[in-house]
Design a protein around this nucleic acid. Structure first.
Lengths: 202, 202
DNA sequence: ACCTGAACACCGTTCAAGT
DNA sequence: ACCTGAACACCGTTCAAGT
């Protein structure tokens, strides 16, 4: 009898909420926010569409959960990039910026949901996983640069400006606002990141 | 008899294509790209949904036309801002940047369509009205700065970097990625534009 | 407590038919 | 040449009903 090993509350799904977020994330990454549907996510999870409303208030709440997953992954990528970059604050900041752009170019659809009308921004990433938020990492990296004397001025203002530049080049590239070859795009990324670091200079 | 004054081919609409673009633009500006529907645009224009396909291949083609209207308006705003700013190249560039951010904050839904998966970018603005494109204006303004000796380096690279910063702060502000008061937002815009101009400095 | 089934008011798109 | 009308396969959301 399998009923013996069955854990309580695991009749249809051990964790439908988690299953829905996982399948929704996959659907968004492959088909984009517009191609994504609540019904398709329910279908992929093997449940009736109405079952989704037991765990999310509506379609946009499910997309917000997908966005939160994205911010956790982005923060992870930034931490990994900084770890590989070494100890020099400017190097660590550059690695953080490159991880940000790389995430956007690797996973444009996910990135779009994170900054679309759904996800409530990068501070959201702190919830759930308990890790640092993407924005917190940026502020910390700039704070380290200030301490090391390779940056001047208030950290918050510098953070907004640096973030705007890095976010801007990311969105321009993934939205195809400008037609570029891969090598041209790399040069543009280099130029933006170099310009940001020079702009922060003490 | 009214039939005497009727012009040829004006039975149902003098220009259904234009009427559809106008109503679609209004719908996008009030309800956003997601709230917009081809059927609602047809309803507002007083025609059957199927009639839209006589003028546009599909829903996204209609949205692309809305985006093109947006790029024409953006270029107009930039020209007006520069005209009011005077003759100094750096002042004119600053006015251009401020017009860009102001457009995004005033008409966020339209701005979103322009840079979403639909509109094919700002170079599109050159078509139709015959006016200059938003990107062309940016490149020209930077070229003038180079001629005046207040900017160094290649224009194309500088244009991408400046555009990224200005576009970035625009999208971060309208997507609510960071929560700010109006005065904080103004300060952030000032900081970004100042940083861009300083970064261009010869 | 959690999920199903059927229903409602919408979509985008197609195609034959009207004028 | 341009538009209508009806149809198709989808949506998001709600609500009574099942277990």
């Amino acid at each position: 009898m399998t009923s013996v090993t069955r854990t309580a509350g695991a009749y249809h799904h051990r964790d439908l909420r988690r299953a829905l977020v996982d399948t929704a994330t996959d659907l968004v990454r492959t088909h984009g926010p517009d191609g994504f549907s609540l019904r398709a996510a329910a279908r992929a999870a093997g449940v009736d569409p109405a079952a989704v409303y037991r765990h999310f208030t509506d379609r946009s709440a499910l997309l917000a959960a997908v966005a939160a997953v994205g911010f956790e992954r982005l923060a992870d990528d930034m931490v990994a990039g900084m770890a590989a970059a070494g100890d020099a604050p400017a190097d660590r900041f550059e690695a953080l910026g490159r991880a940000y752009v790389a995430f956007a170019l690797t996973d444009p659809q996910h990135f779009r949901v994170m900054f679309g009308p759904y996800g409530s921004g990068p501070s959201r990433g702190a919830d759930g996983a308990g890790g640092p938020s993407a924005y917190g990492l940026l502020v910390d990296a700039l704070g380290d640069m200030g301490t090391a004397g390779v940056m001047s001025g208030p950290v918050e203002a510098a953070a907004m400006t640096a973030w705007a530049a890095i976010h801007g080049i990311s969105t321009l590239l993934i939205d195809g606002a400008v037609t570029m070859t891969d090598t041209e795009a790399d040069a543009a990324i280099d130029h933006v990141i170099g310009s940001v670091i020079r702009g922060l200079g003490a």
